[in-house]
């Protein structure tokens, strides 16, 4: 369950919107921030808040890249695999990250810290190769830089 204050705030936002359902992505993001990912329970809560059916929520939730319907780690790494980043990397970044984290794309490290997801161009081609960690952009990346970033996050986490 969403904490009461958070829920109230969302309800207020929804009431202020012209149409409740225009906020479906925001509500899902809020629920995701709370649960870590959009759980089944969160789907029902979103449906309830927005006056939509769970099926309608699911239809939207499963469309988008940044809505996670499965558990993710504390840090979600979206690594760009589009053309400029691909061309600018010695080795595909995804491959490098898989190796360093010891997981396959789509997986989460055993310590629950990192989830690795390939995405299409993140709009940082001028800083290629690039990736997002929890939506913060990093680039241009080298293997050494990646090491430093991961170490830093491991220490924080």
């Amino acid at each position: 369950m969403l904490p009461k204050t958070r829920k109230k705030a969302l309800q207020k936002e929804i009431a202020a919107a012209e149409h409740a359902r225009e906020l479906v992505v925001d509500v899902l993001m809020a629920l995701q921030a709370h649960y870590g990912h959009v759980t089944d329970e969160a789907v029902f809560e979103a449906a309830d808040l927005l006056g939509m059916t769970p099926m309608e929520i699911e239809e939207v939730a499963t469309f988008y890249t940044f809505i996670y319907r499965r558990p993710v780690g504390k840090y979600v790494i979206h690594v760009c695999d589009s053309v400029i980043c691909w061309m600018e990397s010695e080795r595909p970044l995804l491959e490098v990250l898989c190796e360093k984290l010891g997981i396959a794309p789509g997986e989460t490290t055993a310590d629950g810290l990192f989830t690795l997801l390939p995405v299409c161009c993140i709009g940082y081609c001028d800083r290629a190769p690039a990736m997002l960690i929890n939506r913060k952009a990093y680039g241009p990346l080298t293997e050494n830089k990646i090491d430093r970033i991961l170490t830093g996050l491991r220490q924080e986490g």
């Binding site: 059916t53 099926m55 309608e56 699911e58 239809e59 499963t62 469309f63």
Partner: peptide
Amino acid sequence: YPDLGVTGI
């Protein structure tokens, strides 16, 4: 009826 839909992309 609401309980059939299309998911994914």
